[in-house]
């Protein structure tokens, strides 16, 4: 056995991409193999989108939604569904598992350090979400004739803020949960009420006024509000954008402050 004398030419690692990039690729590959994100975060909302698309009753305009139909409203709702699954279930489960199994600890002994694994997981989920959103918009548009948001810049900004807010919530769940099981449980329990306030079951516009107000201060509710305005052709108003930004910043700060590496 010649385990040693194995020094490779020093140029090799630099030529084949930086460690960070490799880490992001590895984490993306692992996320896809893990199937939680692809199945629940992408496959499930996509199927729901297709099923709802063939229901004629959903092509009626929703009262107080500025002329958008029920189905039109479901497109951004399902985009938020995707973000919420990836950020609040897939991300915390994976990262808390890494902490529990000593993956982060092993990283701590390398020049890269465990924080880079966190960033790579965030980047991987962000990338999957981006692909999913483009896919949903394409299916809704080409398959069922749903127009793209009439204010694209406003929509992109809202989407970026919504992903930042949800990933930050996911990071906070990771930081505060004692283990992998708890992280999954917290993420799942939070998922349903948050999706309710995004209008998954009842469009927000049809909720009682008090619930609408609450909705506007939840991350998914604020995201939905901003998306809806962008769909109608306006630049989203300040309130939902600031709400999303506040969730993103606040949760990130608390997560960093309290993050347990082991």
């Amino acid at each position: 056995m010649s385990v040693l004398n194995t020094a490779a030419p020093a140029a090799a690692p630099a030529a084949s991409g930086s460690a960070t990039w490799r880490l992001i690729k590895a984490e993306s590959r692992l996320s896809i193999r893990d199937k939680v994100g692809p199945l629940w975060g992408v496959g499930c909302p996509l199927i729901v989108l297709i099923i709802l698309g063939v229901v004629p009753a959903l092509r009626e305009p929703v009262e107080a939604a500025g002329g958008l139909t029920y189905f039109d409203l479901y497109v951004p709702v399902l985009i938020l569904f995707n973000l919420a699954i990836l950020a609040m279930t897939a991300l915390p489960t994976t990262l808390a598992g890494y902490r529990e199994n000593g993956v982060l600890r092993r990283m701590q002994t390398t020049p890269i350090g465990p924080a880079r694994v966190l960033s790579a997981q965030l980047a991987a989920n962000f990338a999957i979400a981006l692909v999913a959103t483009v896919l949903f918009l394409a299916v809704a548009g080409l398959g069922f004739g749903v127009d793209l948001p009439r204010h694209p810049v406003g929509f992109i900004l809202s989407w970026l803020l919504a992903s930042a807010a949800l990933l930050a919530v996911g990071l906070l769940i990771t930081a505060l949960s004692p283990g992998r099981g708890a992280a999954t449980a917290i993420g799942t329990v939070l998922f349903f009420p948050m999706m309710f306030f995004a209008g998954l079951w009842v469009p927000v516009a049809q909720m009682p006024e008090m619930l609408q107000t609450i909705s506007h201060y939840t991350p998914l509710g604020a995201g939905m509000q901003a998306f809806q305005e962008a769909y109608l052709g306006h630049f989203p108003s300040a309130a939902p954008l600031l709400t999303l930004a506040a969730y993103a910043a606040g949760c990130t700060i608390i997560a960093i402050r309290w993050f347990r590496w082991e």
Partner: peptide
């Protein structure tokens, strides 16, 4: 890829 002069 984490190291400046890794082994093969």
């Amino acid at each position: 890829s984490f190291y400046p002069e890794p082994a093969d």
